[in-house]
Amino acid sequence: MSRLSPLNWPVLRQLRTGDAFGRDTNTRSVRTEEISARISEADRVVKSVCPYCAVGCGQRVYVKDEKVIGIEGDPDSPISRGRLCPKGSASEQLVNSSSRITTIKYRAPGATEWTELDHDTAMDMITDRFLAARRRGWQDTDDQGRRLNRTMGIAGLGGATLDNEENYLIKKLFTAAGAIQIENQARI
């Protein structure tokens, strides 16, 4: 039968082959039979958490040759049950963006250009500034002689892109350093 025969029209073909609802061979073509999912080429699947907000939606990250090739919602997650919002669905672009900065940048006071720093130098600068601010703002006692043991020189603002465990550890760090101004974006 020729392709243009009226007997080959989709509705007639469905009725002729017993596929009245069009869910069997009538909906398939050579092209669709050859298509495979882009994630089928992945070397491994890593479970992760979406980095965007405090909800903590589960993600499946598909990796091939140590490069992220796709991210989908994790159906095993009790929080999101396999669903992701538009930002979570696009988080693969966050990882693979050609404009993503992967080095430490520093712009000195008064400078107009950024320079790259190595990890150790950057950590030393942050530590020195943290300790100096803590020292400058330290308060042993108040006006009435009551013990305070706190600093007003540093404050902490946690981000909702961190999970509960990371925020808990950051809270403990700032509390141990004597800071009392500690807040989190997810609570504000």
Rank of each mutant, 00 (worst) to 15 (best):
S5V: 07
A122Q: 05
T127I: 10
I170L: 15
A177M: 14
I126V: 15
R187G: 00
S29I: 04
A42K: 07
R16F: 08
E72Q: 09
T175W: 12
G159F: 05
A20C: 08
L173P: 01
G18R: 06
A176I: 09
T151A: 03
A54L: 04
T112Y: 05
R60V: 04
L131Q: 11
D120L: 12
I180S: 08
C50G: 02
S40A: 14
D142S: 06
G137H: 08
I188M: 14
A177W: 08
A177P: 03
T103D: 10
G73I: 05
K47S: 06
C85E: 04
R13I: 01
R146G: 05
R81P: 00
D120N: 13
A42I: 07
Q14I: 00
S40Y: 06
T25I: 11
R44C: 10
Y52T: 01
I35K: 07
S29W: 06
P109M: 05
R81K: 14
L148S: 02
A20I: 15
M125C: 05
P86D: 01
T141V: 15
G110W: 10
Q181E: 13
S5F: 08
D74T: 01
G178W: 02
A37L: 14
C50S: 10
E92S: 02
R28P: 00
A20P: 11
I39R: 13
E92K: 09
A122T: 03
L4S: 14
I79E: 01
D74L: 04
S97G: 11
T175V: 12
P75I: 10
C50L: 04
R83N: 11
T32C: 03
P109R: 08
W9K: 14
K67S: 10
T17Y: 12
N149M: 09
P10T: 13
L12P: 00
P10E: 12
D142F: 11
Q59E: 15
H119F: 15
I79H: 04
A179W: 03
A179Q: 04
L131I: 14
S99A: 08
C85R: 04
A108C: 00
K171E: 11
I154G: 01
G158Y: 02
V11H: 12
I180C: 06
R146N: 15
E66T: 06
I180F: 09
D143M: 15
